[in-house]
């Protein structure tokens, strides 16, 4: 039931999003970011550490750190313009429609609470599902993420589970309320290599079964090549490439993307030697960003004076 590309409307629309440090309002952490995810689409968001990938995720869920502030832009989820809604309504929309699979399964579960309420809380206390229904659903979800003996896992505390098990639990929790959009923020980075593959496969499998739109955040183009249809490349808080995964590898348009591909191990061409991103490319990209910043600041000051 994939929507017709030409007529369908994206489910998540981020436009012109700029975020700054409150105490340094000319320094942008996100630079006029545009990001669109269609219903059911799997989109990769790639960038090196510190590029601002998590900031984008946190914007969607309204959990930005206190030190930063949105100065411009819009975020639309379905029919709702999030930044125009009052906070409580915004939180309702987010809770109903979206879920987050966090990076670190060690701190993403509350250590002193059992697994069951951590999966069912949102169902019973936000969405008004009855306790027994929620419990039934939690058990079914744990089955879906291939956890043996769901009954006893539901009664466990997080520290009784391995990292991979916890990430499975978190994936189950993310799908609990049948969200339209899931943001997975580097969901495998904290895990062992062997477990990484299983979790990646599981996320792809769950996404396909539920038809959820998925924004998959990673620093690894190789992972993108495996599970994503489309990809946005972020550098220094700026989207430098937005394309289909197929054409990303065939015809990268931005020099930074080209360099990034050359620096990524290829599963299909394991013998090819890797070239680290050249300094000249980084310099050129930063130059480009500085120019964009100047233009943005100029426009804002002009706007402010009016």
């Amino acid at each position: 039931m994939s929507p017709d590309k030409a007529t369908a409307r994206s489910y998540l629309d981020i436009d012109d999003l700029s975020i700054v440090l409150k105490h340094q309002p000319t320094h942008r952490l996100l630079r006029s970011v545009g990001l669109h995810v269609m219903p059911g689409e799997v989109r990769g968001l790639v960038g090196e550490s510190g590029a601002g990938k998590s900031m984008i995720g946190k914007t969607i869920f309204d959990i930005l750190p206190r030190a930063v502030e949105i100065v411009e832009g819009s975020v639309r989820l379905g029919d709702d313009e999030l930044l125009k809604l009052p906070q409580s309504a915004r939180r309702k929309v987010i809770a109903r429609t979206s879920a987050l699979i966090p990076q670190d399964p060690l701190t993403a579960l509350n250590p002193v609470r059992r697994i069951e309420p951590q999966i069912t809380d949102r169902l019973t206390r936000i969405l008004g599902v009855s306790k027994s229904d929620a419990r039934e659903r939690a058990r079914a979800l744990l089955d879906e993420v291939h956890i043996r003996d769901p009954e006893s896992v539901l009664r466990n505390y997080p520290h009784q589970l391995s990292g991979g098990m916890r990430q499975r639990v978190l994936i189950a929790a993310a799908f609990a309320a049948e969200p339209k959009l899931i943001v997975a923020d580097e969901p495998t980075t904290a895990l062992d290599v062997t477990v990484q593959k299983q979790i990646l496969k599981l996320i792809a499998e769950m996404q396909a079964r539920h038809g959820t739109a998925l924004l998959f955040v990673t620093h690894d183009l190789g992972v993108v090549a495996k599970i994503c249809q489309n990809v946005s490349v972020l550098y220094g808080g700026k989207i430098v490439e937005d394309t289909e995964v197929k054409s990303l590898f065939a015809r990268p348009t931005h020099a930074y993307t080209q360099a990034l591909i050359a620096a990524t191990p290829r599963y299909d061409r394991p013998d090819e030697s890797l070239v680290p991103v050249p300094a000249a490319v980084i310099e050129a990209t930063q130059h480009e960003i500085a120019a964009a910043d100047d233009a943005w600041l100029g426009a804002r000051q002009a706007g402010g004076r009016r």
């Binding site: 309204d62 987050l100 966090p102 701190t107 993403a108 509350n110 206390r125 936000i126 929790a173």
Partner: peptide
Amino acid sequence: RMDYIDSARAAGFS
């Protein structure tokens, strides 16, 4: 500072 606080916020809790 733990992620579960963010998760709970994202899940809609005050």
